[in-house]
Amino acid sequence: MEPNDLFFRLNRLNYHHLYHFWWVGRLGNLTRAADQLHVAQSAVSTHVHRLESALGQTLFDRQGRALQLTEAGRVAMRHAEEIFQSGAELVGLLSEGKEGRTRDVHVGAVSTLSRNFQEAFLSPLIGSSDVNMTLSSGRLDDLLKALENHSLDLILSNTAVTPGAAGIRSCQEIARQVGSIVGPPRLMETSSRVSDIDGVPLLLPGRSSGFRASFDLYCRRMGVTPVIVAEVDDMAMLRLLARDSNFAAVLPKVVVKDELRSGMLVEYGELPDVYEYFYAITEKRRYDKPVILELLRQLDDVHLHQSMRASE
């Protein structure tokens, strides 16, 4: 874009109008926004209309008295927040000597997902001085709703979601790890392959997980029936039970990488064709946050796969 074109477009963007839009977007109501700004409702409405005209986009869906942000409105809202945050930082820098410019990124993780895997995948953000990351955990259905509402930028999941459903653009496999039987030293014989677990007491993942379904299929194929000590949906809890009980557990090694490294637990053997899959879920949007694109771009290099191998 030529400098003159950029100046013309910025000159059309009235920051006073943007500020009024920001208040309406926060409150979802013209009257309440006008009360906060101590101006007439008609003035706020006029400023929002003028901003929409300047941007060439409809920013609100008007549903009676309620105003819902459109996709363009949510993008404008996010940038407005960053603009006003930058203004506050400028004032803080010049008046108090404090500085800091951060990019916000909101990640959701399915509550049953390995914490060790989350740490490995998100390490580029955790170590970045210019990224303010929030990480929330919950049920996949709830996280998908938050993603659709633009409250989340990315979901990490161990369950696949059909691409295209509910506006979802991509459910990308980002890693997988073969399952193993692990437990206290000297509890079982160690081997390169566990082929006979018939009657062996085991701690297992919950039946709702794809990993558990893969393990059950393996048992049927091998004609074995393990003794189920407990079934645990939460991988963090399964990790604690594997560490503190006197039973072996079936899980991906990334979950207990620290215990394996220290010798607190040992691997008795891998389970062929029993995999835990890890997915990154993003929504179809016209405007993607660069920080999310940067994070997903790591899948083209060896960072994550090295992190996974380090746990083996």
Rank of each mutant, 00 (worst) to 15 (best):
V255N: 06
G28M: 10
Q306V: 13
Y275F: 13
V255M: 05
M237L: 13
A280N: 09
A175D: 07
D300L: 04
Y287A: 14
A242H: 10
A165G: 01
Q36I: 00
Y19R: 14
R103I: 08
R65L: 13
S208D: 13
G210E: 12
Y19A: 15
N29W: 11
P252T: 02
H38S: 03
V232S: 04
V161P: 04
E96I: 05
L240M: 14
G199S: 13
V200R: 03
A54L: 00
F121G: 08
T46P: 02
L152M: 08
T31Q: 15
F117K: 13
Q118N: 13
D196I: 12
Y287V: 05
L55G: 06
E270V: 14
L37D: 01
S209I: 11
V105A: 02
D216Y: 15
E99H: 07
G206M: 07
L18K: 00
S170D: 11
L10A: 15
T58N: 10
S123R: 02
N246H: 06
S191I: 03
L69H: 05
T159M: 10
L204A: 00
A34P: 01
Q85C: 05
G164S: 03
E259V: 09
S123D: 13
S136Y: 03
G56N: 12
F7D: 04
L143K: 00
S42P: 03
L122K: 13
S214G: 15
S192N: 12
G199V: 10
L260A: 04
S208P: 05
L304Y: 05
F84K: 07
E119Q: 09
A54R: 12
G127E: 01
L135M: 02
L152I: 06
P124T: 10
P226A: 11
M188V: 05
I168F: 06
G92Q: 04
E276W: 03
Q41E: 07
M188L: 14
S128I: 01
S95D: 14
I174C: 15
